[in-house]
Write a protein that binds this DNA or RNA. Structure first.
Lengths: 253, 253
DNA sequence: TAGTGGTCTAGACCACCAC
DNA sequence: TGGTGGTCTAGACCACTAA
């Protein structure tokens, strides 16, 4: 990385710094390597720590860096491709599904979800919590909202809550014929509970995937899945498993 | 919004502030309304301007606010749904396509795209620039990479560059049989040129959609589309046009 | 306990926009 | 020209991790 100095340019310092660091990451660092700490880096580039941090935040947003309090800043591995959409429409929890059902409760969904489900205001629905782990890291957290009317045969007696009940609800869903589904992807910031599950701080950028499941022309279930935006790349279509490389190779120094 | 004061809580001030402001936006503001300036807001909540800005940045990331230098901070309208994936695979530029072809040049693609296209290192390809405008606002910028081998019948004589040539290249593409395509969505930050086209500052968060088009088992073209993450919600599947409301209604005060 | 990143402050100046 | 958001500084203290 050298003893690089910032020349005076019209573009913001933090942006120029981001570019310099990005190139240094490409040419002089390997995945997992630890960068000098923020105070040293700032001194080396002759900027305030806040400015240096602005550049690091950009690079973290782009999935190039990983920062952990008390530990340090490391070079992030390439983003993990996570298959989100396949050609066939399937229910959550179908065989081959990599998600892990953690819990099931019954409560009123947030207004935005209630609107999608077309349930009455304040009406309770089953809420299944699931999580997705890839490469040993938490990748996504999901809340599945299922109106009681969608799973009428669900026995309320055994397993009133917990993972067993979550699996029972998913099993009931499989019995319905899935006629269609659609998805929306947007940027969000992790709420406190999601952040904890994703091993991030509150406000961390996430990709929110909202899926509607249709049966007999009605919305039978809604899934709101929250993916870590820094580590995940969502893949759709035929070759969800095929590797796509977006970043130039990270070479060793 | 009142003369609210921050109580002492373990969570960061900026995060608490974000919540307070978010609730105020729901209950006391209408879309398009101008907020007090940052110095006033900071004073009102008894925090430094930098802390207040951290909260505003969160809300802007979530698409709740829009900030423009020299103008002020306004309440953003709900995100626009942009149809990205349909069930049928179609070439870019097909009838009904809302994109506007702006330009076409010939140059070597970045290494990441060259990898997808399986072209030789440094080999030139056609690069079509297109842009998408919705509701009078720039929503996305796209670069379409097409190896010369994919459009062998393209006449190099008329329209060596510009919009006319872009349309000619797309026309040639339509003649190929499209066998499949796949997509990946990830978070990125706008480069200087994209930022300009999207009417944002460099580094603004964007959703990057990378699409591969297949013909006869080979990758015939690659599209890298950059959507404004603050204003766009990408929709996939059957009902791309159907409205999905993610946010509670914004009521008037 | 030492070192890391995360939060916060109180200023300053700049770039941009509307009047 | 006055007001806005954007950038930058030089500190301080806190929360967390690992030795």
């Amino acid at each position: 990385m050298g003893t690089t100095q910032l020349e005076s340019v019209p573009e913001p310092k933090y942006w120029h710094l981001r570019t310099v660091l990005s190139e240094a990451l490409d040419s002089e660092f390997t995945v997992g390597e630890i960068l000098p700490n923020e105070r040293d880096l700032a001194a080396r580039f002759g900027v305030a720590r806040a400015t240096l941090r602005q550049a690091l935040e950009q690079l973290e947003l782009e999935g190039r860096l990983q920062r952990r309090r008390g530990v340090g800043t490391t070079v992030a591995p390439p983003r993990v491709g996570v298959a989100v959409g396949t050609e066939q429409h399937v229910w959550p929890g179908a065989p081959g599904d990599a998600w892990h059902a953690a819990d099931c409760t019954t409560a009123a969904p947030p207004a935005s979800v209630a609107g999608l489900l077309e349930t009455a205001d304040g009406e309770s629905v089953h809420i299944v919590r699931r999580s997705l782990v890839t490469h040993g890291q938490p990748a996504a957290a999901e809340l599945l909202y299922i109106p009681a009317a969608s799973v009428p045969d669900l026995s309320a007696i055994d397993a009133p809550s917990g993972a067993a009940r979550a699996r029972a609800v998913l099993r009931e869903l499989q019995r319905l014929e899935l006629e269609g589904q659609d998805r929306a992807v947007e940027l969000g910031s992790a709420r406190a509970d999601d952040a904890k599950e994703l091993d991030r701080l509150p406000g961390a950028p996430v990709l929110v995937v909202t899926t509607r499941f249709f049966t007999e022309g009605r919305t039978t279930a809604v899934s709101v899945a929250t993916y870590r935006a820094d580590t995940c790349r969502l893949t759709f279509g035929d070759s969800g498993g095929v590797e796509i490389h977006h970043d130039p190779e990270r070479r060793a120094s």
